[in-house]
Nucleic acid binder design. Structure first.
Length: 249
DNA sequence: TCCATTTGACCCTC
DNA sequence: GAGGGTCAAATGGA
C-alpha cells in the first residue's frame, strides 16, 4: 500500500513522535518507581505504556509508508491463498513455520483496542480456565490485512492479555482516530446528512453508497458496505468504552 | 440475504 | 502424541 505524505501527515508524525517520547519518559519513571501513588498497579500501567508505545510505533510506521516497525514479525505471505494448494480433503490450509512472537499488551477493562476485529476461533488452553480467543482484522478479506491478535483473560485478576501479530495494512487506524479525540467532538457524516454522534441515536441509518465518515478532523471515505458496517460497530464500541471508567478512549 | 460468531475438525510444531 | 492455531460449515441475528 503506497501512501503519499501530506503536510498534515508530517504534522501527525511530529505529534506522534512527541507522544512516543512522553510514553517512553513515563516508562522510565515506572522503571525507577518514581510514581509511588500508582505503585499498586504498575503491571496494568506498564501494559498501557507498552500499548501507547506500540500504537505510536504503528502509527509512525503507517504514516511513514512502511508496513511496520522492525519489532513485528510478518506473516507468511503464502497464507491466505489456498487456491494454490492441493485441495484434497480439507488440507488446503497453510501454516506459518515456527512460532511467531507477538507483542503482548495487558488491558484491565476491555479487550477493545479501537480496531475492528473478527473472531475466527476459540480454544481452551491446557492449564487455563479461560479460553483463548483468536481474531484477525475485519478488513482481511477487503485489504488483505494480515493483522491478528489473541485475547486471553487472566484467571487471577481478569486482566485481558492481548497478543498482537502482524501489522495492519488495511490503512484503517481506528486507534489513531479514537485516542486523542473526545467523544463529544465526533461528527459523523454518512452521505448527505451530518449529525453529532452524541446527540443522535445512531447516525449510521443514513448512510448511502458513497458514505463518508468524519471524526473530528479526520475524514475517512467508506465506500465499501462491509467497511461501513464495521465502522458502525466501532462507533458503538467507542460509545461503550467512553462510559467505562479508566478506559483509554 | 448478508455477515459475524460458534464450534468441531484438521493440521502443524514441539 | 499433546497442545495450540486455523479453517470452514453451521447457525443465528439484523
Amino acid at each position: 500500500m503506497k501512501r503519499v505524505m501530506s503536510a498534515p501527515g508530517f504534522a501527525a508524525l511530529e505529534i506522534l513522535a512527541k507522544g512516543r517520547e512522553s510514553a517512553e519518559a513515563l516508562n522510565s519513571m515506572l522503571d525507577q518507581q518514581q510514581l509511588p501513588e500508582v505503585s499498586t498497579m504498575p503491571h496494568e500501567l506498564r501494559g498501557l505504556v507498552e500499548q501507547i508505545l506500540h500504537c505510536c510505533d504503528r502509527a509512525l510506521a503507517a504514516l511513514s509508508g512502511g508496513t511496520g516497525g522492525g519489532t513485528c514479525k510478518k506473516r507468511n505471505p503464502e497464507h491466505g491463498s489456498p487456491v494454490d494448494l492441493p485441495c484434497t480433503m480439507r488440507s488446503k490450509r497453510l501454516r506459518v513455520r515456527g512460532r511467531e512472537r507477538g507483542i503482548q499488551v495487558q488491558n484491565k477493562w476491555t479487550m477493545e483496542d479501537g480496531f475492528a476485529w473478527r473472531k475466527y476461533g476459540q480454544k481452551n488452553i491446557h492449564g487455563s480456565k479461560q479460553p483463548r480467543l483468536y481474531f484477525h482484522c475485519s478488513y482481511k478479506d477487503d485489504s488483505g490485512c494480515m493483522a491478528r491478535r489473541q485475547v486471553q483473560q487472566s484467571e487471577a485478576d481478569s486482566v485481558y492479555v492481548i497478543t498482537y501479530f502482524g501489522e495492519h495494512t488495511c490503512g484503517v487506524d481506528a486507534m489513531a482516530i479514537g485516542h486523542d479525540e473526545k467523544m463529544e467532538q465526533f461528527v459523523i457524516n454518512f452521505g448527505s446528512g451530518t449529525m453529532d454522534a452524541q446527540q443522535s441515536g445512531s447516525p449510521w441509518s443514513s448512510c448511502d453508497d458513497d458514505g463518508l465518515v468524519v471524526i473530528g478532523r479526520h475524514r475517512i471515505c467508506v465506500t465499501h458496505r462491509r467497511m461501513r458496517r464495521s465502522c458502525k460497530r466501532a462507533w458503538w464500541l467507542l460509545s461503550l468504552s467512553s462510559s467505562q471508567p479508566g478506559s483509554y478512549s
